[in-house]
């Protein structure tokens, strides 16, 4: 097999892993503030469908991306209202949001199934444009791929080097203490969910506007849940999330390579690799898990008694 096909596989793996990184970063932000959002799948679907619809109607992928982000943030506000304001169970609310996403995205995307759009423009990696066209096309990525690692670093900076991030993490560890030290846990959690939704929206936009450039019902195909698993894999740390999503991309690439080299392993079994790796890593790190899990993840903060 040629070097060209290997490069092609790596390039497509990078495309499929990018949306996951953004979604994982988003989930890290909300889980650091103490909210586990199982509805990520729903948020991704709603964002992906509205982003695609706006891009199709306006012809402007940047506008589609922007709308996708905002819609992601707003969708998470439903979750916020339920779990922060009404103090509902986080797991149940997340699953309800997931069902909402299934339905709403199918409704929004109904008239766009099979439509084609001009996706986000792709730029060749600087310094490689002198390569033959066949090769350089494999090194041309959209801006969201270039921005993915800087975004992860930015989220790390936001969480670990700003006062806002300190307050957010404190809320995730112990909301009462955060309140006692003069912060507003409810407001912080709303903010965290909104930021989380923005990031999920970027991920979804990458999926529908930059990568596949089509809309299909349930196109996320479990990415939301992979992202939730990757959050644990990366131990709630934005920079380790890069490694997590690279492993996922690597598994995808590995699977494509095996297929193209004619090895007879069912793609369905290869699909399970990322989950199994995540599970093994969780087991290996089980003993030290308590140090990194936000202590009040999943707990209701009821405010002053």
């Amino acid at each position: 097999m040629s070097i060209l096909s290997i490069l092609g596989v790596l390039s497509s793996a990078l495309f499929s892993g990018t949306s996951l990184l953004y979604a994982t970063l988003g989930e890290i932000v909300s889980e650091r503030s103490g909210i586990i959002n199982l509805g990520l799948e729903g948020t991704l679907l709603i964002s992906a469908s509205t982003g695609f619809a706006v891009t199709y109607l306006s012809g402007n992928p940047y506008l589609g991306m922007l709308v996708s982000m905002i819609v992601g943030g707003l969708t998470n506000m439903i979750m916020g209202y339920l779990v922060i304001h009404r103090q509902a169970n986080q797991l149940a609310s997340g699953l309800a949001l997931m069902f909402f996403g299934f339905g709403l995205s199918a409704m929004i995307g109904k008239s766009f199934v099979g439509a084609k759009i001009e996706g986000l423009p792709r730029f060749t990696v600087p310094g490689l444009s002198h390569l033959p066209k066949l090769y350089s096309s494999l090194f041309s990525f959209d801006m969201l791929i270039y921005l993915s690692i800087p975004t992860a670093i930015f989220i790390w900076w936001l969480l670990f080097r700003t006062r806002w991030g300190l307050g957010l993490r404190a809320t995730g560890e112990n909301a009462d203490t955060a309140f006692a030290s003069g912060r507003n846990p409810k407001l912080i959690r709303y903010q965290a969910l909104f930021v989380s939704g923005l990031l999920a929206g970027i991920g979804a936009a990458h999926l529908s506007i930059a990568y596949t450039m089509t809309w299909a019902e349930y196109m996320t195909a479990g990415r939301g849940f992979i992202a939730i698993a990757l959050v644990i894999f990366s131990r709630w740390h934005p920079l380790k999330a890069i490694a997590g999503s690279l492993i996922f991309s690597g598994a995808v690439a590995f699977q494509l390579l095996l297929q193209s080299s004619g090895v007879q392993i069912s793609p369905l079994l290869l699909d399970t690799i990322p989950y199994i790796i995540t599970l093994l890593v969780l087991i290996a790190w089980g003993g030290t898990r308590k140090q990194s899990t936000p202590a009040s993840l999943g707990r209701v903060y009821s405010g002053r008694e």
């Binding site: 909402f100 299934f102 339905g103 995205s105 199918a106 409704m107 019902e217």
Partner: peptide, 11 residues
């Protein structure tokens, strides 16, 4: 209607 729309009612 798409079958999934009923998920909205459920949600």
């Amino acid at each position: 209607l798409p079958a999934a729309v009923i998920n909205i009612l459920l949600a």
